[in-house]
Every structure is written in structure tokens, then in C-alpha cells.
Computed example of a mutant assay.
Amino acid sequence: MIQLSYFEPETARWQHGDITQLPKQVPADARLWIDLNNATVEEQQMVLQRFGILDNLVEDFIRERHPPKCEGQTDFTLLVLRGYADIDFSEYTASAQINLLYSRQVLISKITSHNSSLLEQLKPKIEQAKTANISEWIKQIILVTSSSYLEKLIAFEDEISDLEDAMLQRGNDDLMALIMRYRSVLRKINRNLAYQKDIFAEAFDEQQSPLLAHFDTIELRDFYEKIERSHSMTDMYYDQLSDLVDSYLSTTSHQINERMKVLTIVSTIFIPLTFIAGIYGMNFVNMPELAMTNGYYIAISAMAVGGIFGLAWFKYRGWW
């Protein structure tokens, strides 16, 4: 189903309805928002063809999952963004997919998100229409999108600090599993942020960027800095988590080496003792020492001296 909201400049009021109420021509001072969230593919194609959208833009807009991008034609600009829709970074369900096609009078949107709160924030605030315009709506959506990452990244700073302390005091496999999940999520959102950062970075280099038709360089710089900050924070947190993994593996390896050293010392001490015991455990008839009255005590003493000498030698060399 297609939802249509039309601001009539003569009455200064919003009219809500369906596609049948779409005016054939949108006046220059009117504003039109077409919400295609619940529209079928055929309905989406019908609306986009009504406004003469190029086929390649239609294809990109209709796709359920599309990486962030910005592309324009004579009257319309396609802007695809992704917001972070999960509560935290312990799991990654799906991004909020934000597909926008807009001109100076018309906004066509398709926004999907499993987070109802974020979805509500991404909707244009038409109650402010008397002072706002399409560019203001797009600006609001961009800021909400960047905020969906930044707010959670700022809150994650305390969590990663606690995680570092926990790993230092009582690192275990459960914490390692949590760290690996965090790394996986951060790697995925880092790609989304990299795409979006490039969109606004290219706007400064390309004089014909479609974003320049709706935003000045100061606004574009603000968008870029917000996305770039989130992107830098994901890089920093990913590196911190990687350092924790390396530290845990190094500590675990060191502990294993210490245990192996103790086992090696014990084995080295008992090898000569086992050798002596093996010799006198042989069942030969002619073994002169077997007839010695103090043979048992001499053998035990030799084994004790050998063990003590071995321990003293390891201590002297600093191996124990």
C-alpha cells in the first residue's frame, strides 16, 4: 500500500491519502511525501515511473538490501543509507535500510527497520512542514542515521573499559566469545560507515555531486564529520578488542609454558631414577648387587642424591 502526504500551499494544510490523490503536477511551493514502506514491487515501479526515474535508479531503490550510495539525475537524487538498529553490539540482526529519492518538492522513501523506535525517528516530521522543506527532512534522516551509530559507540566506551578490566583479572573463554562477537559486529558496521563516509567525502571533490543541490558545504562537512567520527571509533574499538584477544592468547600461552616447564623438570628428575629402578628390576640370575646386604639402601641413596643434584642444577641455572 502506498501512503501519500501532500501539502497544499493554498490551504497550508496536509492532505493524507492514497496514490489516486497524487496530483499530475506538483506546484513549486508544494511538498509531497510518498511512503513506499508497505508498497509492492509493482506499486513502487509505478510511482517511480510516474516521476520519470531512470531505470538504474529504480533498480537500486527497489532492492531490499543495497549498500549506501548517492546518485543523481536531472531532477531527482537517490540516497541510500544504513542505520544501526540493534540495542547494542552483542549481536547484529540487520541494519535499518533507508532508500530515498527526492527533489526540491518530492520525497519518495522506503525505510525498513526491526527497531520501531528508530523507524519512527527516521520518518519526516510533517507537522513542521510550514517551516521545513525536503532538504530539511533529508538532513533530519541523515542526522538520525549517524546518531544511531554514534550514541551506541559512545555508550560502548564504558563497556569495553569494563571488559578490559575483567580480562585482566579473570580472563576466560566466555569473555573471549563475547569479544569475538563484538569484533564481528564492529567489522560489519565499519563497512557501512565507510560507504557512508565516502558519500560525503566525495561531495567535496566532485563539483557536480547531487548533494550540493540541496546542502551547502558547511552542512556536508557536518554530515561527514559525524560519520567519520563513528567510523574512527569503530576502528579504535576493533583494535582494542584485537589487543585484548592477543593479550589473552599470550597470557594463556605463557601459563601453558609454565606448566610445561614444571612437567619437564619433573620428567628430567625422574628419568635417571627410573633408569636405576629399571636396571635393578631386571630378572637376571647373576646380578652381584643383589647379594649385597646394604644394596637396597645404597640404591635408594643414589636415587635421592641424583634427584637432589638435578633440582640443585636447575636452580643454579635459573631454570626453576
Rank of each mutant, 00 (worst) to 15 (best):
T293M: 07
I138C: 05
I227P: 01
I269C: 06
D29Q: 15
L119K: 14
T40R: 02
L186S: 05
G306A: 15
F204G: 09
S242G: 15
R191S: 09
G83T: 02
D235H: 05
E225P: 00
E91D: 10
L175T: 01
T274W: 03
M303F: 12
L4Q: 03
W137M: 08
N37M: 09
Q73M: 13
L78C: 08
V305M: 13
I98D: 05
R187N: 11
F76A: 07
S148Q: 06
L48A: 04
T274Q: 12
Q128G: 08
M236R: 11
I279M: 12
I126G: 01
K139C: 04
N115R: 08
S148E: 04
F275T: 07
L220F: 00
A28M: 10
P124Y: 09
R63D: 15
Y195E: 04
L241W: 00
Q73G: 15
F215D: 01
V41T: 14
E228P: 00
D162F: 10
A155Q: 11
K315C: 04
R181C: 04
A30M: 02
L244Y: 01
L263G: 07
Y248M: 03
P124R: 10
N115M: 06
N294E: 12
E206M: 09
I111R: 01
R187T: 10
D243A: 14
K24R: 10
D235S: 13
G281I: 10
I62S: 04
T20S: 15
I62E: 00
K261N: 13
I298R: 05
K110D: 09
L107D: 01
A277L: 09
L78H: 09
R229D: 05
I271S: 11
M176F: 02
Y92C: 00
L241C: 11
D162G: 05
R170H: 14
L186R: 05
Q105I: 05
E43D: 14
Y237R: 01
V26A: 05
A30N: 07
I279F: 13
F275H: 12
T274R: 10
I19Q: 07
Q240H: 10
M233L: 15
E42Q: 10
L178P: 00
Q169R: 13
Q45T: 12
S267D: 05
C70Y: 06
M287I: 15
S95Q: 06
T217F: 02
Y149M: 04
R65T: 14
A132Q: 13
F7D: 00
A12R: 13
S209P: 05
L168T: 09
D35H: 08
Q49G: 05
L163S: 06
I87Q: 11
M180A: 11
L36N: 01
I308P: 02
Q49D: 13
F270S: 06
D243G: 14
P23N: 01
G307F: 06
E59F: 05
M180N: 10
P27C: 03
E225R: 07
V262L: 13
H254T: 09
P23W: 05
I138A: 03
T251M: 12
G171L: 07
L249E: 12
I300Q: 11
I256Y: 03
R63I: 00
D60C: 08
V26E: 02
T252G: 12
Q21G: 15
A213Y: 06
S209T: 06
Y6R: 02
